[in-house]
Computed example of a mutant assay.
Amino acid sequence: MNPNLLKQLAIVVKQGSLSRACEQLYITQPTLTRSIKQLEMKVGAPVLKRSRHGVIPTEIGARLAQIGERILADTDHGEEVIRQWHSGYHNEFTLGIDPLWEFAAYREMSDHFLREKRYVFHLRTGSAAAQIGLMQAGELDFLLAPAHLTVAQESLQRDLLFRDRSGVFAGKKSSLIRRKGAVALDELERQNWMIAGASAGFLDGQGELAGPTAARIAFTGSIRSVLHLLNTTDMLVRLPARLALMTGEIAPEQMIEVEGKPGPRRDIALWSRTEEGERPEILKVRELITELVTGMDQKTPTFGLDL
Protein backbone atom coordinates (compact mmCIF):
# COMPACT_ATOMS: atom_id res chain seq x y z
CA MET A 1 0.00 0.00 0.00
CA ASN A 2 1.23 3.48 -0.84
CA PRO A 3 1.99 5.15 2.54
CA ASN A 4 1.23 8.57 1.03
CA LEU A 5 -2.42 7.57 0.81
CA LEU A 6 -2.49 6.86 4.54
CA LYS A 7 -0.74 10.15 5.30
CA GLN A 8 -3.29 12.05 3.23
CA LEU A 9 -6.16 10.24 4.96
CA ALA A 10 -4.71 11.13 8.36
CA ILE A 11 -4.61 14.82 7.43
CA VAL A 12 -8.20 14.73 6.13
CA VAL A 13 -9.39 13.13 9.38
CA LYS A 14 -7.45 15.63 11.48
CA GLN A 15 -8.80 18.60 9.52
CA GLY A 16 -12.33 17.22 9.20
CA SER A 17 -12.56 18.77 5.75
CA LEU A 18 -11.28 17.91 2.29
CA SER A 19 -10.75 21.56 1.41
CA ARG A 20 -8.73 22.31 4.55
CA ALA A 21 -6.69 19.14 4.01
CA CYS A 22 -5.93 20.32 0.45
CA GLU A 23 -4.63 23.61 1.86
CA GLN A 24 -2.26 21.74 4.18
CA LEU A 25 -1.15 19.30 1.47
CA TYR A 26 -0.82 21.96 -1.29
CA ILE A 27 -2.85 19.86 -3.73
CA THR A 28 -6.17 20.34 -5.52
CA GLN A 29 -9.38 18.81 -4.24
CA PRO A 30 -9.80 16.53 -7.33
CA THR A 31 -6.30 15.16 -6.67
CA LEU A 32 -7.11 14.43 -3.02
CA THR A 33 -10.49 12.92 -3.96
CA ARG A 34 -8.73 10.53 -6.38
CA SER A 35 -6.32 9.49 -3.59
CA ILE A 36 -9.20 8.74 -1.23
CA LYS A 37 -11.02 6.74 -3.92
CA GLN A 38 -7.83 4.80 -4.65
CA LEU A 39 -7.55 3.92 -0.95
CA GLU A 40 -11.23 2.90 -0.81
CA MET A 41 -10.73 0.61 -3.82
CA LYS A 42 -7.86 -1.06 -1.95
CA VAL A 43 -10.01 -1.44 1.18
CA GLY A 44 -13.22 -2.36 -0.61
CA ALA A 45 -15.24 -0.02 1.61
CA PRO A 46 -15.61 3.71 2.36
CA VAL A 47 -12.98 5.28 4.63
CA LEU A 48 -14.83 8.59 5.05
CA LYS A 49 -18.42 9.64 5.51
CA ARG A 50 -20.07 13.04 5.48
CA SER A 51 -21.42 14.70 8.62
CA ARG A 52 -23.06 18.04 9.34
CA HIS A 53 -19.64 19.52 10.09
CA GLY A 54 -17.56 18.02 7.30
CA VAL A 55 -16.15 14.51 6.94
CA ILE A 56 -15.46 11.89 9.60
CA PRO A 57 -13.78 8.49 9.27
CA THR A 58 -15.57 5.19 9.09
CA GLU A 59 -14.36 2.45 11.48
CA ILE A 60 -11.73 1.18 9.03
CA GLY A 61 -10.93 4.77 8.03
CA ALA A 62 -10.15 5.70 11.63
CA ARG A 63 -7.81 2.72 12.01
CA LEU A 64 -5.98 3.53 8.80
CA ALA A 65 -5.76 7.23 9.76
CA GLN A 66 -4.00 6.24 12.99
CA ILE A 67 -1.39 4.39 10.92
CA GLY A 68 -1.09 7.46 8.72
CA GLU A 69 -0.47 9.63 11.80
CA ARG A 70 2.42 7.38 12.81
CA ILE A 71 3.85 7.51 9.28
CA LEU A 72 3.67 11.33 9.36
CA ALA A 73 5.43 11.44 12.72
CA ASP A 74 8.12 8.98 11.64
CA THR A 75 8.67 10.92 8.40
CA ASP A 76 9.16 14.19 10.29
CA HIS A 77 11.49 12.49 12.74
CA GLY A 78 13.46 10.90 9.92
CA GLU A 79 14.00 14.30 8.29
CA GLU A 80 15.18 15.72 11.62
CA VAL A 81 17.60 12.79 12.11
CA ILE A 82 19.11 13.52 8.69
CA ARG A 83 19.55 17.19 9.65
CA GLN A 84 21.21 16.12 12.91
CA TRP A 85 23.59 13.78 11.05
CA HIS A 86 24.58 16.52 8.60
CA SER A 87 25.14 18.83 11.58
CA GLY A 88 27.58 16.37 13.15
CA TYR A 89 25.49 15.14 16.08
CA HIS A 90 25.99 11.51 17.16
CA ASN A 91 22.59 10.76 18.63
CA GLU A 92 19.30 12.16 19.97
CA PHE A 93 18.00 11.51 23.49
CA THR A 94 14.52 12.22 24.78
CA LEU A 95 14.35 13.35 28.40
CA GLY A 96 11.06 13.64 30.26
CA ILE A 97 10.93 16.36 32.91
CA ASP A 98 8.67 17.06 35.86
CA PRO A 99 6.95 20.47 35.32
CA LEU A 100 8.20 21.99 38.58
CA TRP A 101 11.75 20.74 37.93
CA GLU A 102 11.71 22.36 34.50
CA PHE A 103 10.50 25.68 35.90
CA ALA A 104 12.99 25.67 38.78
CA ALA A 105 16.02 24.46 36.84
CA TYR A 106 15.46 25.60 33.24
CA ARG A 107 18.45 27.95 33.17
CA GLU A 108 21.02 25.50 34.58
CA MET A 109 19.58 22.61 32.60
CA SER A 110 19.60 24.43 29.26
CA ASP A 111 23.13 25.73 29.74
CA HIS A 112 24.38 22.29 30.78
CA PHE A 113 22.92 20.48 27.76
CA LEU A 114 24.01 23.13 25.28
CA ARG A 115 27.61 22.64 26.37
CA GLU A 116 27.43 19.01 25.18
CA LYS A 117 28.35 19.08 21.48
CA ARG A 118 27.83 15.40 20.62
CA TYR A 119 24.11 14.92 21.22
CA VAL A 120 20.72 16.44 20.53
CA PHE A 121 18.29 16.58 23.46
CA HIS A 122 14.53 16.51 23.16
CA LEU A 123 13.03 17.71 26.47
CA ARG A 124 9.44 16.70 27.17
CA THR A 125 7.46 18.08 30.14
CA GLY A 126 4.50 16.29 31.73
CA SER A 127 3.12 14.56 34.81
CA ALA A 128 5.20 11.73 36.23
CA ALA A 129 2.48 9.08 35.83
CA ALA A 130 2.02 9.85 32.14
CA GLN A 131 5.75 10.01 31.45
CA ILE A 132 6.48 6.70 33.18
CA GLY A 133 4.05 5.16 30.70
CA LEU A 134 5.87 6.79 27.80
CA MET A 135 9.18 5.47 29.11
CA GLN A 136 7.84 1.93 29.35
CA ALA A 137 6.57 2.27 25.78
CA GLY A 138 10.09 3.19 24.65
CA GLU A 139 9.28 6.84 23.85
CA LEU A 140 11.63 8.30 26.50
CA ASP A 141 15.28 7.51 27.16
CA PHE A 142 15.37 9.19 30.58
CA LEU A 143 12.94 10.79 33.00
CA LEU A 144 13.61 13.32 35.77
CA ALA A 145 10.63 12.91 38.07
CA PRO A 146 9.62 12.26 41.70
CA ALA A 147 11.33 9.19 43.12
CA HIS A 148 8.36 7.94 45.16
CA LEU A 149 5.45 7.02 42.90
CA THR A 150 2.66 4.47 42.94
CA VAL A 151 2.85 3.86 39.19
CA ALA A 152 4.03 0.54 37.78
CA GLN A 153 7.82 0.53 37.64
CA GLU A 154 8.78 -2.86 36.25
CA SER A 155 11.90 -2.91 34.08
CA LEU A 156 12.85 0.61 35.19
CA GLN A 157 15.99 1.79 36.95
CA ARG A 158 15.74 4.61 39.50
CA ASP A 159 18.68 6.72 40.73
CA LEU A 160 17.84 9.26 43.45
CA LEU A 161 19.74 12.48 42.68
CA PHE A 162 18.01 15.47 44.30
CA ARG A 163 16.75 15.50 47.90
CA ASP A 164 13.49 17.22 48.76
CA ARG A 165 10.48 17.16 51.03
CA SER A 166 6.90 18.26 50.62
CA GLY A 167 6.10 21.63 52.17
CA VAL A 168 2.86 23.55 52.67
CA PHE A 169 2.81 26.94 50.95
CA ALA A 170 0.31 29.74 51.60
CA GLY A 171 -0.75 32.38 49.12
CA LYS A 172 0.52 35.89 49.78
CA LYS A 173 -2.92 37.01 50.97
CA SER A 174 -3.13 34.27 53.63
CA SER A 175 -3.17 35.25 57.31
CA LEU A 176 -0.99 32.18 58.02
CA ILE A 177 2.13 33.81 56.59
CA ARG A 178 4.59 34.84 59.29
CA ARG A 179 2.53 32.95 61.88
CA LYS A 180 4.76 32.00 64.80
CA GLY A 181 4.68 28.31 65.65
CA ALA A 182 3.05 25.41 63.86
CA VAL A 183 -0.42 25.77 62.38
CA ALA A 184 -2.90 23.30 63.89
CA LEU A 185 -4.54 20.72 61.63
CA ASP A 186 -8.07 21.93 62.42
CA GLU A 187 -7.11 25.41 61.23
CA LEU A 188 -5.58 23.99 58.05
CA GLU A 189 -8.89 22.30 57.32
CA ARG A 190 -10.64 25.67 57.27
CA GLN A 191 -8.36 27.08 54.56
CA ASN A 192 -8.88 27.25 50.80
CA TRP A 193 -6.76 24.55 49.18
CA MET A 194 -5.62 23.70 45.69
CA ILE A 195 -3.84 20.57 44.48
CA ALA A 196 -0.70 20.47 42.35
CA GLY A 197 0.28 17.24 40.62
CA ALA A 198 -3.24 15.85 40.83
CA SER A 199 -2.42 12.90 38.56
CA ALA A 200 1.28 12.54 39.24
CA GLY A 201 1.01 9.23 41.14
CA PHE A 202 2.56 10.36 44.44
CA LEU A 203 2.75 7.75 47.20
CA ASP A 204 1.27 10.14 49.78
CA GLY A 205 -2.21 11.57 49.47
CA GLN A 206 -2.22 15.33 49.05
CA GLY A 207 -5.55 15.92 50.75
CA GLU A 208 -5.07 14.73 54.32
CA LEU A 209 -4.10 18.17 55.64
CA ALA A 210 -7.13 19.79 54.01
CA GLY A 211 -9.67 17.60 55.80
CA PRO A 212 -13.00 16.51 54.27
CA THR A 213 -13.54 19.65 52.15
CA ALA A 214 -12.59 19.22 48.50
CA ALA A 215 -9.85 21.38 47.03
CA ARG A 216 -11.31 24.21 44.95
CA ILE A 217 -9.01 23.63 41.97
CA ALA A 218 -6.48 20.98 40.92
CA PHE A 219 -3.68 21.01 38.36
CA THR A 220 -1.97 18.21 36.48
CA GLY A 221 1.21 18.98 34.56
CA SER A 222 0.88 22.70 35.27
CA ILE A 223 2.96 24.83 37.61
CA ARG A 224 2.58 28.34 36.20
CA SER A 225 -1.05 28.60 37.35
CA VAL A 226 -0.15 27.28 40.80
CA LEU A 227 2.51 29.95 41.21
CA HIS A 228 0.09 32.63 40.01
CA LEU A 229 -2.46 31.66 42.66
CA LEU A 230 0.21 31.64 45.37
CA ASN A 231 1.04 35.21 44.41
CA THR A 232 -2.55 36.51 44.19
CA THR A 233 -4.76 34.55 46.65
CA ASP A 234 -4.86 33.08 50.16
CA MET A 235 -4.94 29.47 48.89
CA LEU A 236 -2.73 26.68 50.27
CA VAL A 237 -0.93 23.95 48.35
CA ARG A 238 1.61 21.21 49.00
CA LEU A 239 4.70 21.31 46.78
CA PRO A 240 8.25 19.92 46.77
CA ALA A 241 9.72 22.61 49.01
CA ARG A 242 13.25 23.07 47.65
CA LEU A 243 12.12 23.06 44.03
CA ALA A 244 9.28 25.47 44.75
CA LEU A 245 11.62 27.94 46.44
CA MET A 246 14.23 27.51 43.68
CA THR A 247 11.78 29.06 41.22
CA GLY A 248 12.21 32.46 42.87
CA GLU A 249 8.44 32.95 42.44
CA ILE A 250 7.64 32.00 46.05
CA ALA A 251 9.00 33.77 49.14
CA PRO A 252 10.53 31.56 51.88
CA GLU A 253 8.04 32.91 54.43
CA GLN A 254 5.20 31.45 52.34
CA MET A 255 6.29 27.95 53.45
CA ILE A 256 4.38 27.53 56.70
CA GLU A 257 5.10 25.17 59.58
CA VAL A 258 2.31 22.67 60.20
CA GLU A 259 1.46 20.45 63.14
CA GLY A 260 2.73 16.87 63.10
CA LYS A 261 5.60 15.11 61.37
CA PRO A 262 7.63 16.64 58.49
CA GLY A 263 6.22 16.47 55.01
CA PRO A 264 6.81 13.29 53.00
CA ARG A 265 9.82 12.88 50.71
CA ARG A 266 9.57 14.43 47.27
CA ASP A 267 13.02 13.52 46.01
CA ILE A 268 13.83 13.72 42.29
CA ALA A 269 15.18 10.60 40.60
CA LEU A 270 16.61 9.80 37.21
CA TRP A 271 14.49 7.02 35.70
CA SER A 272 15.62 4.89 32.77
CA ARG A 273 14.88 1.51 31.21
CA THR A 274 16.98 -1.27 32.75
CA GLU A 275 17.35 -3.11 29.43
CA GLU A 276 19.30 -0.22 27.87
CA GLY A 277 21.48 0.61 30.86
CA GLU A 278 24.74 -0.78 29.44
CA ARG A 279 24.73 0.99 26.06
CA PRO A 280 27.81 3.25 25.91
CA GLU A 281 25.85 6.27 24.68
CA ILE A 282 23.23 5.78 27.41
CA LEU A 283 25.96 5.60 30.05
CA LYS A 284 27.52 8.85 28.81
CA VAL A 285 24.23 10.74 28.86
CA ARG A 286 23.31 9.26 32.26
CA GLU A 287 26.59 10.62 33.59
CA LEU A 288 25.86 14.02 32.02
CA ILE A 289 22.42 14.27 33.64
CA THR A 290 23.67 12.95 36.97
CA GLU A 291 26.42 15.57 37.05
CA LEU A 292 23.84 18.32 36.49
CA VAL A 293 21.29 17.17 39.07
CA THR A 294 23.68 16.19 41.87
CA GLY A 295 25.48 19.49 41.38
CA MET A 296 22.19 21.34 41.87
CA ASP A 297 21.43 19.25 44.94
CA GLN A 298 24.76 20.23 46.49
CA LYS A 299 24.47 23.96 45.85
CA THR A 300 20.75 24.47 46.58
CA PRO A 301 19.93 25.56 50.17
CA THR A 302 17.95 23.11 52.31
CA PHE A 303 15.67 25.89 53.64
CA GLY A 304 15.61 24.26 57.06
CA LEU A 305 14.17 20.97 55.76
CA ASP A 306 15.21 17.67 57.36
CA LEU A 307 16.89 15.99 54.40
Score class of each variant (00 low, 15 high):
residue 1 M to Y: 06
residue 1 M to N: 10
residue 2 N to M: 07
residue 2 N to I: 07
residue 6 L to H: 07
residue 8 Q to D: 12
residue 9 L to S: 03
residue 10 A to T: 06
residue 11 I to T: 13
residue 12 V to D: 05
residue 19 S to Y: 12
residue 24 Q to G: 03
residue 25 L to F: 01
residue 40 E to V: 03
residue 43 V to Y: 01
residue 52 R to V: 11
residue 52 R to N: 14
residue 54 G to L: 11
residue 60 I to P: 02
residue 67 I to F: 10
residue 68 G to C: 05
residue 81 V to N: 11
residue 87 S to L: 09
residue 87 S to H: 13
residue 87 S to W: 09
residue 92 E to Y: 02
residue 94 T to M: 05
residue 97 I to L: 15
residue 108 E to F: 03
residue 109 M to E: 09
residue 110 S to M: 14
residue 133 G to L: 04
residue 137 A to R: 15
residue 143 L to K: 06
residue 147 A to R: 04
residue 148 H to Y: 14
residue 150 T to Y: 09
residue 152 A to V: 14
residue 157 Q to H: 08
residue 159 D to M: 11
residue 161 L to Q: 02
residue 176 L to C: 09
residue 177 I to D: 03
residue 177 I to Y: 09
residue 189 E to C: 04
residue 195 I to K: 00
residue 196 A to H: 14
residue 207 G to M: 04
residue 207 G to T: 08
residue 209 L to E: 01
residue 217 I to Y: 06
residue 220 T to S: 14
residue 225 S to L: 07
residue 234 D to W: 04
residue 239 L to C: 08
residue 243 L to I: 05
residue 246 M to R: 13
residue 247 T to P: 03
residue 256 I to Y: 10
residue 261 K to N: 11
residue 263 G to S: 04
residue 265 R to V: 12
residue 266 R to A: 11
residue 267 D to E: 05
residue 271 W to S: 00
residue 276 E to D: 11
residue 277 G to F: 01
residue 283 L to M: 15
residue 285 V to H: 03
residue 289 I to H: 04
residue 289 I to K: 05
residue 290 T to Y: 02
residue 290 T to F: 02
residue 291 E to W: 03
residue 292 L to K: 02
residue 292 L to P: 04
residue 294 T to A: 00
residue 295 G to I: 08
residue 296 M to Y: 09
